[in-house]
């Protein structure tokens, strides 16, 4: 891997972040953003940058990093460059868990996050079971198909559960299905950061396991991997990583698909490098997507998940064609 790949990614993330802090109802010049970051300048500008846009940009970066590393881990374990938490139905399951917790009145953010973990774990188990029943031991293509079906079912559950939700009290179905960073808070940032550090860190630490798993079942066993347990572990950690992003901003697809493929194209092949590159570029991509969501049809704000899907679906189709 070229040693410039990571620094360039960090630079990209900084640039998109500063742009993201500048745009909005009150446009700010880069210089003002820069000063406001350090608490200098008009107090109003400082408040906009630090309290309104700050958490939003940081949350987008954390979610992008989380989704990208989750996708990278799932792709390696399933040996499938099209795997990612959204297409595998894992994110959908997490959203259902969160929505169910909300409708039963367990509305604290921590409870919602825990419920999202539960939903993601159930969805993971259901997808694996469906694929196994449909034939073969976890055949990667079947797994994706099962994932899409579970995802569709999740959307239906969300729509039904939130059909009569009072919009002023509860986030609507669209918020969950299409994702948004509009109501980001520093508390949400902290929760997501902790999840990213725990689960993402775990994946990076166990990256060698991913290298071996990505060789396939028999070669991995030949290299001393306890394949079934190891794959289950990675699957669970990756799905919880995705679930923590869902609890924070709803469903955002295709980041986990596009970014790991980009990382490989940039020469990151061993999983330790690939996870780190994915995290940085995933963060930059989602901050950039958030900029697009806010500015493409300004003053109307587009759902973030819609923007990532607009980018991700053509990519998915192109990648699918190369795979076939």
């Amino acid at each position: 891997m070229n040693p410039l790949v990571l620094p360039v990614g960090v630079l990209l993330l900084c640039v998109t972040s500063i742009v993201a802090l500048g745009i909005g109802a009150v446009p700010l010049a880069v210089v003002d953003v820069w000063h406001a970051l350090w608490g200098e300048g008009e107090s109003q500008v400082v408040a906009i940058v630090r309290d309104l846009r700050g958490p939003r940009v940081v949350l987008a970066a954390l979610v992008g990093a989380g989704l990208a590393t989750s996708g990278a881990a799932l792709q390696g374990t399933l040996r499938n460059p099209l795997a990612e938490p959204y297409l595998l139905g894992v994110s959908g399951g997490a959203a259902v868990g969160a929505v169910v917790a909300l409708t039963f009145g367990l509305g604290t953010p921590v409870m919602v996050t825990i419920a999202a973990f539960g939903g993601a774990a159930v969805a993971t188990a259901v997808v694996a079971l469906l694929a196994r029943v449909a034939g073969g031991r976890a055949e990667p293509r079947l797994l994706l198909m099962a994932g899409v079906v579970v995802g569709a079912f999740s959307n239906a559950v969300i729509l039904v559960a939130l059909a009569d939700a009072p919009p002023d009290r509860i986030r609507g179905a669209l918020w969950w299905m299409m994702g948004s960073t509009a109501d980001a808070t520093w508390a949400a940032v902290a929760r997501t950061a902790v999840a990213l550090l725990c689960f993402g860190g775990l994946l990076v630490v166990r990256a060698r396991e991913l290298d071996v798993l990505s060789l396939g079942e028999e070669p991995a066993v030949a290299l001393g991997a306890d394949v079934d347990a190891s794959a289950r572990r990675v699957f669970l950690v990756a799905s919880w990583l995705a679930a923590s992003t869902v609890a924070a901003v709803g469903l955002i697809g295709f980041v986990g698909l596009v970014v790991p493929n980009l990382a490989r194209a940039l020469g990151a092949h061993r999983h330790r490098a690939m996870l780190l590159v994915s995290a940085v570029y995933g963060a930059a991509l989602l901050v950039g997507a958030d900029v697009a969501a806010r500015s493409l049809r300004s003053p109307v704000e587009l759902p973030l998940g819609a923007v990532t899907a607009l980018v991700g679906v053509p990519f998915f189709l192109a990648r699918l064609r190369r795979l076939a």
Binding site: N80, D211, L215, G216, E218, A222, G224, A225, R270
Partner: peptide, 21 residues
């Protein structure tokens, strides 16, 4: 699994490159 792989090295019949290194 690990103790086995330290004692026995196996080259399985089929192995496809999905994730190149």
């Amino acid at each position: 699994a690990r103790e086995f792989a330290q004692r026995v090295a196996v080259v399985p019949q089929r192995e496809e490159v999905q994730m190149p290194l």
